[in-house]
Design a binder for these strands. Structure first.
Lengths: 349, 349
DNA sequence: GGGATTTTTGGTAGCGCAACCAAAATCTGA
DNA sequence: TCAGATTTTGGTTGCGCTACCAAAAATCCC
């Protein structure tokens, strides 16, 4: 007696599901067994050329689309990599994502994108949901997460790369740059050029802790060196040129001593330069302006903007490459990579 | 004799797969049947409060993460919606994606993002792969695809929304704006302001057919009205401020008659304005400059940029909403939505 | 209070594919 | 020419979950 006869008995689809073409349909049409079709598609070199041709033709003819879920369930493998970022409105993340996308797509993987809107609870929820897809690895922005997010990812036993900032403590692997050092370097530059009252302008810094790190780096450096002071201005808006546009006037009115402004990003800084231009405020004569990120537009405004260039696409590529090498069993050369940054001293300071 | 007894026989994991906590584990630990756990998670209202509490506690305790693939395979339903766009470097798509993301996440769906890099073959491949996830619907940028892409999507029998441009022929549903009309409206504006030699500056227009449509709309309008002429300038670069920065000088040198320039997007137009500023070229005195998209920065440069504002986030939201309503069985009010656009006439023209 | 509902729980089967093992076909060398 | 090695093909089983159906328990109504 054949215990599996029940499952071989012909039947119509169990539920109202759409009756898509399945691997068995292709097999039947091509006159081979299902497993041969599976092989022809996944490991073509193990199937004779004749059958391969016939099978490919049948696949084409029937418009067969493999059910990835069934495949993933059977093989306990997916080629979908979740990428969790705080925001898509920020160009910076988009460029990192591009780097990731290029790299993983070239390796035959797909990207499942989740955005947390800077909310750590949402991040935890997202991580949990995305792990349900049994991904081969996870890419996660930032090093600060809820304890349960970290636990979840550690328990899941998948490679994880945390990208954006470089730091000592990571779940698994880490690629990024030190924002504290970037802040310090900018402070050093501004002090060197003789500015003595340096403002930092940021938005929603409770959420954007990387901006906070830059401010911290700057503040500490100024304190260490002495002879100058810093002041923080925070706006509750989303980061954008408008913030810089308004901030320039606000700040100079609120604290006329300020002779240099370090903005949390280039967009705000560009907004400030444009405002200065319109209102005839001399940059850097009246106030120096610096940004962060090294967006192309920073070089185009007049005066050209001093900024710190971060290798965003590179971060994405490195993160993806690291993850892929771990997925493929090759341990990456290093578990933590500091991609560094470059200070672009231009005429706005 | 029980034909399925074979599958009930206890066994160790078949392969070297990682032995994650499964629904059955939770059921055993909570002392209920697996199906009850499934219900407690998916349709909590159908399970008594006592059991629900016990099950949730067990889920928590064991760190159970449902295997979405198994669920999807069994129910023939996923909550993952593929979104296919030509590019992520373009802010415009990112904003549309944000609108989509917000809307579908609120409805409990996930976004699977694919980018085609303006390659229709890649688009077809991507569509095929993504359909393998048996998605409840598909969001696709643009109305122009390879025949096989359209066939694939039609055969898949899932709701599809094509977004970005509005047009007569769509696979299923469509949200966007008419780029041809936008071009014509801008032409009308420039003619009305007295410009007579109007240049259009675009990049990679073989791929970016929406920019081409705007040019076409402009060209035809100018031809219809008479008394003015147009000229096309095309750059092989990626679209960005640098293009406008260089184009302004190039164009004026190549064709000194040109008295107005309509750029394919705001970024290029802003680049041109910044260049004009640096080089002391009067805008709009020597040459008028107009952009497209209505990015925030267009209002901040001096002179403020005339542009056409497109409701990008709105397009994303509408597209997602339409798709969701179809997924939920409610046919959307309309199958095609023209979201329109607004000409922002500012001082650069 | 007893039958008819309604609510809550469980059993069974199978979604579509790939891993594992076995069998068949082909090739190799003396 | 034939045993043994190699390549190519097929059968069976189960991945973890939910649809469907049925049974049990709780509630209702006159």
């Amino acid at each position: 007696m054949d215990p599996s006869s029940a499952s071989l008995r012909p039947r119509e689809p169990r539920r109202g599901r759409r009756t898509a073409v399945t691997l068995s349909d292709v097999a039947a049409a091509a006159g081979v067994s299902p497993i041969t079709v599976s092989r022809a598609l996944n490991t073509p070199e193990t199937v004779s050329e004749v059958l391969r041709g016939r099978i490919n033709a049948t696949v084409e003819a029937l418009g067969y689309v493999p059910n990835r879920m069934a495949g993933a369930l059977a093989s306990a493998k997916t080629r979908v990599i979740p990428v969790i970022v705080p925001s898509l409105s920020n160009v910076v993340f988009v460029e990192v994502i591009e780097g990731i996308q290029e790299t993983i797509e070239a390796a035959g993987y797909q990207m499942l994108l989740g955005s947390t809107d800077y909310d750590l609870d949402r991040e935890a929820a997202l991580a949990s949901t995305l792990l349900g897809w049994a991904p081969p690895g996870v890419l996660l922005a930032g090093l600060r997460h809820l304890p349960r997010t970290a636990t979840l990812l550690k328990n899941a036993d998948v490679p994880v790369v945390e990208f954006m900032e470089y730091g000592a403590r990571c779940i698994d692997m880490n690629v990024g740059l030190s924002h504290v050092r970037a802040g310090a370097v900018m402070a050093a530059h501004l002090l060197e050029r003789g500015y003595r009252r340096i403002g930092f302008v940021g938005t929603r810094m409770r959420d954007d802790y990387r901006a906070r790190q830059r401010y911290e780096g700057m503040r500490r450096h100024i304190a260490e060196v002495g002879g100058a002071s810093d002041i923080l201005f925070e706006y509750p808006w989303g980061p954008g040129q408008e913030v810089g546009w308004h901030a320039l006037a606000d700040v100079l009115a609120a604290d006329p001593q300020v002779d240099a402004l370090f903005f949390a990003n280039d967009e705000m800084a560009v907004g400030a330069v444009l405002r200065a231009q319109r209102d005839g405020i001399a940059v850097p004569g009246r106030v120096a302006v610096a940004g962060f990120n090294g967006l192309p537009m920073s070089a185009l405004v007049t005066p050209a903007l001093t900024t710190i260039t971060s290798p965003r696409k590179e971060i994405g590529k490195q993160a993806a490459t690291m993850l892929l090498s771990r997925i493929n069993g090759t341990p990456p050369v290093q578990r933590r990579i500091d991609v560094g940054f470059v200070l672009e001293a231009r005429s706005s300071t």
